[in-house]
Amino acid sequence: MSKTKIIDFPKIKDPRGNLTFLQNFDHFPFEIQRVFWTYDVPGGEVRGGHAYKIQEEIIIALSGSFDVILRYKDNSEEKISLNRSYYGLYLPPLTWRHIENFSTNALSLHLSSSLYDENDYIRDLDAYKSL
């Protein structure tokens, strides 16, 4: 099974402003089926709190910053801070996560390998741990 990892995306530097781009399979291992973003998250709020059974995901901080907290079945946690638009966090299936500590005007972009399917979500942490 794949592991979470930070993916560096191409960064084309230009005095007029930098450019970063993504291409399926060149920069990550799936074809994008769904794109969504979160924004205007009030201070102190937490997003996520689930895992996907089969969906893969890339999370990118397009603006501002936030922390992605990964929880493992042994109850250990890992915090990954995202704050640059030219890298993203790859999450394979069965990765429990939540997002917190959003800065003012933070914008998180999510690229998914699957269309929305409520049946793909694992929303109960104890059920996740028992898999």
Rank of each mutant, 00 (worst) to 15 (best):
I6E: 07
I6N: 04
I6S: 06
D8W: 07
F9Y: 13
K11F: 10
I12D: 08
I12P: 05
K13G: 00
D14H: 15
D14W: 08
D14L: 07
P15G: 08
P15L: 15
R16C: 04
G17M: 10
N18A: 12
N18T: 09
N18Y: 09
T20K: 09
T20Y: 09
L22P: 00
L22S: 04
L22T: 02
L22I: 10
Q23M: 13
Q23C: 07
N24G: 09
N24E: 15
N24M: 12
F25C: 07
D26A: 15
D26K: 15
H27G: 05
F28S: 03
F28K: 07
F28L: 14
F30A: 06
E31H: 09
E31Y: 04
I32L: 08
Q33F: 02
R34N: 01
R34Q: 10
V35W: 01
W37I: 05
T38S: 14
Y39H: 10
D40F: 08
D40Q: 15
D40I: 06
V41L: 05
P42M: 11
P42Q: 08
G43S: 14
G43I: 10
G43D: 13
G43T: 12
E45I: 09
V46H: 09
R47E: 07
R47G: 06
G48Q: 07
G48R: 07
G48M: 11
G49M: 12
G49A: 09
H50F: 08
H50N: 11
A51N: 04
A51F: 02
A51M: 05
Y52F: 13
Y52G: 00
K53V: 15
K53F: 06
K53W: 06
I54E: 13
I54H: 11
Q55M: 13
E57Y: 01
E57W: 00
E57S: 03
E57F: 00
E57M: 01
I60F: 03
S63P: 00
S63V: 05
S63H: 14
S65N: 14
S65F: 09
F66T: 07
F66V: 03
D67N: 13
V68M: 05
L70G: 07
R71V: 08
Y72M: 08
Y72L: 06
K73L: 10
K73A: 14
K73S: 15
D74Q: 07
D74C: 02
N75L: 15
N75V: 05
N75S: 14
S76K: 11
S76L: 09
E77D: 06
E78D: 08
E78G: 07
K79W: 00
I80E: 08
L82Q: 04
L82P: 00
L82S: 02
N83C: 13
R84G: 01
S85Y: 12
S85L: 11
Y86H: 15
Y86L: 03
Y87M: 05
Y87Q: 15
G88S: 06
L89D: 03
L89M: 02
L91E: 05
L91D: 01
L91P: 03
P92Y: 11
P93L: 02
L94V: 04
L94E: 07
L94C: 06
L94G: 02
T95A: 11
T95K: 00
T95Y: 02
W96Q: 01
W96C: 02
R97K: 14
R97N: 10
R97D: 05
I99P: 01
F102D: 00
F102V: 05
T104N: 11
T104L: 10
T104K: 15
N105R: 13
N105P: 04
N105L: 12
